[in-house]
């Protein structure tokens, strides 16, 4: 790891000021992805601005049909939250299946979606549930937040404060894990909402995305059989040593069918 300057601000305002001043500053939330990357010397920020000391970024609040999760809330806390388990059990289950227990104790919602790993779980939930990402500057619709592999709509000095998740009628997330990293080779999040089913896919392509074609296929009858003839576009799929594009495309269908079946 290269040396850097370390800061631990106590407020969002202070954090924003620090990043503005830094030559090449980087916010660090739980650090579960950033630190390994830096250990391999693949990232070399001049300044690390640790968000761990900002109390206002942490916590879970349910207000009517909106579940608000602070950006610095750890996966383990989301998984264990009675509020989340009651309101959106699929989201709690997703959080409880990210990485491993120790990673879940440090990794955060904000860190996960800001990093936007193509195989991350949370982005699928943010998109499918139609969540809103609230930053220190604005609100961004979940669907518009993820713009490309490891890229988001966030500006350099913009900081995620919380994510508002509307409560769906039902939701389910199914992922097929990479046997080595346990990241998603393919993950599909399905939410039943009043206007209709919403589906997001992660792991399969450059970054998590809303799966409009899956949604269309589910418009009539929201059940697994409705996807029997569905074919995911092979040409858009990621391919690596763990899964070819063809296999990923197949898994999109299988995971989608299983998520739909579980979405009751």
């Amino acid at each position: 790891m290269y040396e850097f300057s370390y800061h631990r601000p106590a407020s969002v305002a202070e954090a924003a000021a620090l990043i503005t001043r830094a030559v090449d500053g980087k916010f660090v939330a739980g650090g579960q992805t950033l630190l390994p990357t830096m250990k391999h010397r693949l990232a070399s920020p001049s300044d690390m601005i640790d968000l761990g000391g900002i109390a206002e970024l942490e916590g879970i609040v349910v207000n009517g049909n909106i579940v608000t999760i602070g950006a610095m809330t750890a996966h383990a806390d989301v998984a264990a939250s009675t509020e989340v388990r009651e309101a959106i059990p699929a989201l709690a289950a997703l959080a409880g299946n990210i990485g491993d227990p120790a990673v879940r104790n440090r990794g955060t919602l904000g860190g996960s979606i800001a990093n936007n790993d193509p195989a991350a779980d949370y982005p699928a939930a943010v998109i499918a549930l139609g969540a809103t990402v609230r930053t220190n500057q604005r609100e961004i619709a979940g669907e518009d937040f993820f713009t490309g592999m490891f890229e988001t709509a966030l500006e350099e000095d913009e900081l995620i404060v919380a994510v508002d998740f509307p409560r769906p009628e039902a939701a389910a997330y199914m992922k097929f894990e990479n046997p080595a990293s346990r990241y998603a080779i393919v993950g599909v999040f399905v939410a039943r909402t009043a206007p209709g089913p919403r589906v997001a896919v992660t792991g399969a392509t450059a970054c998590a995305h809303r799966a409009h074609r899956l949604e269309e296929a589910l418009q009539g009858a929201c059940n697994a059989a409705a996807l029997d003839d569905f074919r995911a576009p092979v040409e858009r799929m990621n391919a690596d040593i763990h899964a070819s594009a063809e296999y990923r495309a197949h898994l999109v269908k299988v995971m989608a069918q299983r998520a739909v079946a579980a979405c009751v």
Binding site: N178, P179, A180, S181, I241, H242
Partner: peptide, 24 residues
């Protein structure tokens, strides 16, 4: 039998150089 396979690319780069890619 199920998990471990060390792979090099044709250029000789080790494709499975961590536990992220080499399944223990």
């Amino acid at each position: 039998a199920l998990l471990e396979g060390c792979q090099y690319g044709e250029d000789g780069q080790l494709l499975t150089a961590s536990f992220m890619d080499y399944a223990m």
